[in-house]
Design a protein around this nucleic acid. Structure first.
Lengths: 227, 227
DNA sequence: TGCCTGTCGATTGGATCCAATCTAACAATT
DNA sequence: AATTGTTAGATTGGATCCAATCGACAGGCA
């Protein structure tokens, strides 16, 4: 049959099926990575020329980004890249601190050796990585590998979405605590391997707690450097 | 000054500022209430004539509903109202079981007597209500009243969104357990009043747990009535 | 009969055009 | 001088038009 061909098609699917998909994915990546600064107004005409499409796919993409809380939309005034504030960061942490333990808890019983191997490889990659952007990507993949067996697609997608949003705070995170929390990562992985749910959840909670308090201290020091 | 005027404007804002807003809000309500059945294909031309607008606001609205996971969008094939399945319901419960305790926990310390009074009134209304649609609305308002003081807008919005999604399962919920869990509601409210976080969270967990297991049993009985 | 192929209507995706709204600068009035 | 009114340009919202894709059905071929 065509199993060889279908493998090829799996490996190289047509990149985007519609212009809207293309614009949406590219814009989201640009916002999350910080390539477009928070507060930047997104002019439809301007985006249309840079993407070499009409304003229509731009408009549809912006609508979807609005629903994902990546841009603010005001009628007749256009879209603006959402700001990064302490409140936003705390909001994101609170949401992840709720979703991630749930995903991990449901996933742990179904994790297998293949998952642990992949997670281990990602941890090793993180150790050697220096580029902040790639580190965010690797961090996300590590976490999602451990959550992937939860079996609830919406929970997983929602968790991944908010983990991706956290990339926006990555620069601040690194400035605040300097590392990606590899100690907690390793502890979490070891606990998962041992099937020790309580310990894994504890490691994850420490992970969130440490990052969240560090971030808060960092922002508050920034906002009132001399009081 | 104009404090009287601004109160008036608060009370009666222009209903919708754009056609897209209007279509989106109306369609969402229709989907959540079940007025449009799961699996229904949403033809753009058809919707355009019923809403008396062109296809353009329809398209933008459908994009936003897709990002909210209320319709499935397939390129060149259009939008379909998402199905109601056991997996979907479990997914929704898992997400709410993660988000709601977090919101409640953060909100409890800032709840005041006004909030308790409002919550109490809503509970009384639920007791007398028979219309399932209104009961979903009231249930949502009760929960959100207790979560509202969490101080994190995104967490609150996300929680409310998934609480609203649960309205889609309301018929099944009522068929499965017959009531809205008023006992747990009352226990939760009393615990909040007493500032007893642990007891409030416990009541909420029982609320979710009971609903979730009942729903699972109900679906499984439906899917394999004679095996 | 069963399967492939081509064609046509229906539907969506994208481009272009027009109308409505916002912003800012400037003029006019007190 | 400060506030209000006006007007022009920029920008978004909405409508219409054309192109691309999908699905079903009919016809040809083994």
């Amino acid at each position: 049959m065509t199993s060889g061909l279908s493998q090829l098609l799996e490996a190289a699917p047509p990149r985007y099926r519609t212009a809207t998909e293309y614009v949406e994915a590219t814009l989201r990546e640009a916002i999350l990575s910080g390539a477009i600064a928070p507060g930047t107004p997104l002019r439809q005409e301007e985006l249309a020329t840079t993407f070499k499409v009409s304003r229509m796919p731009i408009r549809e993409a912006l609508r979807q980004l609005e629903a994902q809380a990546l841009v603010d939309f005001e009628p007749h005034r256009g879209a603006v890249v959402v700001q990064i504030t302490l409140l936003d960061a705390m909001d994101n942490y609170a949401i992840r601190a709720a979703l991630e333990p749930q995903a991990l808890r449901l996933s742990i019983p179904h994790l297998g050796e293949e998952d642990f191997t992949i997670a281990e490889e990602i941890l090793a990659e993180i150790d050697q990585e220096t580029d902040p952007g790639r580190m965010g990507e690797l961090n996300r993949r590590f976490h999602m590998t451990l959550y992937a067996q939860a079996g609830l697609p919406r929970l997983i997608a929602l968790t991944e979405q908010h983990l991706a949003s956290a990339d926006r705070y990555l620069r601040f995170h690194l400035a605040a605590i300097g590392d990606m929390g590899q100690d907690e990562h390793r502890d979490m992985l070891a606990a998962c391997r041992a099937g020790d749910e309580a310990r894994a959840l504890d490691a994850l909670a420490r992970h969130h707690g440490r990052a969240s308090t560090a971030m808060r201290a960092f922002f508050e020091a920034r906002e009132a450097p001399r009081g």
